[in-house]
Simulated scan of single mutants.
Amino acid sequence: MPLAVLASGIAALSLQVVLVFLATFLLLADFNKKIRPRNFPPGPMCLPFLGNFSSFSLSFQFSKKYGNVFSVLVGSMCFVVVSGLQLVKEALVHQGENFVDRPTSPVSAEIFGSFGLVFSNGLSWKQQRRFALSTLRNFGLGKRSLEERIWEETCYLNEAIEAEKGQPFDPQFQIHNAVSNITFGDRFDYHNSRFHKLLHLLDEACHFQGNLWSMVGLLWLKSFVREIIEKHKEDWNPSEPRDFIDAYLNEMAKEDAPSSFHEENLLQSTLDLFFAGTETTSATLHWALLYMAIYPDIQAKVQAEIDSVIGQSRQPAMDDRGGMPYTNAVVHEIQRISNILPSNVPRVTTKDTILAGFHIPKVNMKKIHHSSLPSIFL
């Protein structure tokens, strides 16, 4: 055999050996990373490198098998999924400080950064949250002024529904539009095609979290909110703040304003409030309509109580709540059984924590993408 041919064969064999060795090494390393530590929540077997990514949407079935606390792996990240009223209350209320931080990922960092009310951590989060709560209260959250805005928008919504002249139609975008008008403060006409596109993208972003299309929708939404902020700057009057954006601009203009009050935090906080206030309320109303259609006997009892207490000549008010126990119970039941969001916003552990007897270790935020088993609470 010529030496050149022999050398070529040895080189090819060596390349195959190297590739097999490398593949074996990577598989063993990945397997080692995915070994659950002692007393960690159980979960399904996962694929190499991908983890449980393809079956993440099957969390409901997993809870039947593993209980109300289980873990799934998505890539190199481990999610601990908690369900059930008592355990969720234990995690979010009784041990809330242990799960107060948010995780970061390349995608979320690119779109949201570490700003706003949802994806920020530490002092910045506390400052933004405190300001948002006080500002929303000042602008009528829980007050009669907000109730009056709801009355006004309800009239527009009723007109839009009546325009369908009793024919079957999908009320999704009319409801979404109405809720958005109350959340944003500015009114967008129900036939505004650009705003309808925005609402459609918002809906996609909510129901397909992590999907590439949802990321495109969020970027488009971010651009839309940025335009609204720029318009606010043009006619901003510090002595007469109209909404959250104006109040935030006032805060930014103060000489002693904390360093966390800047335009990126304004943009993301506005986006967070819009998303939280619009999507959740709209989804609740959609579920309410569905349940009223499915259970006409309950619908009839609710209507009878409304007619008895409110009548047909005026708008309902929060003061009527005490005299409408059945309607109040139905509203709460709709909120209880409705699936408003596919999943909650992720959180991470700030200290070693015991939940339902399982050990969930503290997450090192600086090494969250590199640790052998980062623990993320969902």
Rank of each mutant, 00 (worst) to 15 (best):
H359F: 14
P296T: 09
I337N: 10
R314S: 09
I228K: 07
P342L: 12
D246W: 01
I340Q: 02
E263F: 02
I334T: 14
P241R: 00
E240K: 15
T270C: 07
L266A: 07
S313L: 10
G322H: 12
P346L: 02
L266G: 01
E333Y: 14
V302D: 12
K362W: 05
L249G: 07
A356H: 04
W236D: 08
D320L: 05
L289A: 07
E230N: 08
R336A: 10
E264N: 13
E251T: 06
A288M: 05
I354H: 06
T280E: 02
P296G: 05
R242H: 01
L285M: 13
P316W: 06
R314C: 11
W236R: 06
R347D: 03
P346D: 03
R336E: 14
A276T: 00
I334V: 15
F274Y: 09
R336G: 14
V309K: 09
I306S: 08
S260C: 15
F244V: 04
P346V: 00
V302C: 14
G323Y: 14
R226T: 11
I334G: 07
H262D: 08
F244W: 00
M292V: 05
E255M: 08
I334K: 11
H232P: 00
P238C: 05
E240T: 15
T350E: 01
E333V: 15
Q268I: 11
L355C: 08
D319C: 12
W287A: 03
N328Y: 10
N237E: 11
V309Q: 13
V363I: 09
N344E: 07
L289T: 03
V348M: 06
M318T: 12
E251M: 06
G277I: 01
I229N: 00
W236F: 15
F358P: 04
I360H: 01
W287M: 02
A276C: 03
F274S: 00
H359W: 10
K301L: 14
P325L: 08
H332T: 10
M324V: 12
F275E: 01
E251D: 09
A257R: 08
I298E: 03
T349K: 03
N328P: 06
S269V: 04
A356K: 05
F244Y: 10
H262R: 02
E264K: 14
A247W: 03
I310W: 06
N339G: 10
H359T: 13
I337C: 15
D272I: 01
P241H: 04
V309H: 11
N364G: 09
M252Q: 12
L289I: 10
D352N: 14
Q299R: 05
G357W: 09
E234L: 13
T327W: 00
E234Q: 13
P316V: 08
D243I: 11
D246E: 08
R321T: 10
A329T: 09
E279G: 05
R321Q: 14
D320A: 11
T280W: 04
E230D: 07
K231A: 05
L271Q: 03
I229L: 04
I294S: 09
H286R: 13
D243Y: 10
Y295E: 01
E230F: 00
D235T: 11
A283M: 01
I306M: 09
E230G: 01
